[in-house]
Amino acid sequence: MKTIFFPAVLGRMKHLPRWALMPNIRTENVHEHSMDVALIADLLCAIRNELFEGSVNAGEVVRAALYHDASEIFTGDVATPVKYANPEIKKCLKAAETEACTKLIDMLPDSIQAAYRDSFFPSQDIKELVKAADKLSGLTKCILERKLGNSEFGDAEESHHSWLRENCGHMHEVGYFVDHCIPAYESSLDKVLRR
């Protein structure tokens, strides 16, 4: 019987730190970040479908969100300033990510590889929702660090707000999330429990 390495290798996302170039008060790894992105993506889908008459398949979006950074098992979490330093670096990293995703899919039995291909290589519409959820997750991390007294994340917080304004202005669900959900990240647990 052939050993299937796919879940064991994905489990290694727990060992990949995020925000490695910045001092963190509360460390975060790629595994927990992926879960956070999936939760936010799921809510974005519900907001789009129920409040703005959308018809996106939440299951497909959530699966894509779960695996959106899986390639980092092989590439590591490359810092944003490095990743986007110039077009050639960005192109090379994209190629490495594609190769890493293909390698992960190849770890599955042939008969189920196709079931995962769309999760690792989603359509543009799904990719756009996952990217928005990814940036929202990054924004919530910045808010948490600021609340804990870490001023190092101030520029990153503003950068995430700017990116969301510039790239998601057409996505009503993102605006709704920013207006109605982001303020809750500023609240203490006691304040939340008193509601």
Score class of each variant (00 low, 15 high):
1 M>R: 06
2 K>A: 11
4 I>S: 02
4 I>Y: 00
5 F>T: 07
7 P>E: 00
8 A>L: 14
9 V>G: 01
15 H>N: 14
19 W>R: 09
20 A>I: 05
20 A>G: 10
22 M>S: 14
24 N>L: 10
25 I>A: 12
26 R>H: 12
26 R>V: 13
26 R>T: 08
27 T>Y: 10
30 V>N: 06
32 E>S: 07
32 E>A: 03
34 S>H: 04
35 M>D: 08
37 V>H: 01
38 A>E: 01
38 A>D: 04
38 A>V: 00
40 I>G: 01
41 A>F: 01
43 L>R: 14
45 C>P: 04
49 N>C: 12
49 N>S: 12
51 L>R: 15
52 F>M: 08
52 F>D: 07
53 E>F: 12
55 S>V: 09
58 A>G: 03
59 G>R: 05
60 E>R: 13
61 V>H: 01
64 A>C: 13
64 A>M: 03
64 A>E: 00
64 A>H: 02
67 Y>L: 12
69 D>F: 01
69 D>Y: 01
70 A>R: 03
71 S>W: 03
71 S>A: 13
72 E>V: 02
73 I>K: 07
75 T>M: 00
76 G>K: 02
77 D>P: 04
79 A>N: 05
82 V>I: 15
88 E>Y: 10
93 L>M: 00
94 K>V: 00
97 E>R: 14
101 C>S: 09
103 K>M: 09
104 L>Q: 05
107 M>L: 13
110 D>C: 08
110 D>R: 12
111 S>L: 09
112 I>H: 06
112 I>K: 04
113 Q>K: 14
114 A>V: 11
114 A>I: 11
115 A>K: 12
117 R>Q: 12
118 D>Y: 13
121 F>R: 10
121 F>N: 06
127 K>H: 11
128 E>D: 12
129 L>V: 11
131 K>T: 14
132 A>E: 00
133 A>G: 06
136 L>T: 10
137 S>M: 09
138 G>S: 08
138 G>R: 02
140 T>A: 04
142 C>F: 08
142 C>L: 07
144 L>R: 15
145 E>D: 13
146 R>H: 11
151 S>F: 11
152 E>K: 06
153 F>I: 05
155 D>A: 07
158 E>S: 05
159 S>E: 09
159 S>M: 11
164 L>T: 00
167 N>H: 12
168 C>A: 11
168 C>K: 03
169 G>K: 09
172 H>N: 08
173 E>N: 06
173 E>G: 02
178 V>D: 02
180 H>C: 14
182 I>L: 12
182 I>Y: 07
183 P>E: 10
183 P>H: 11
183 P>Y: 13
184 A>M: 15
185 Y>P: 07
187 S>F: 15
187 S>Y: 15
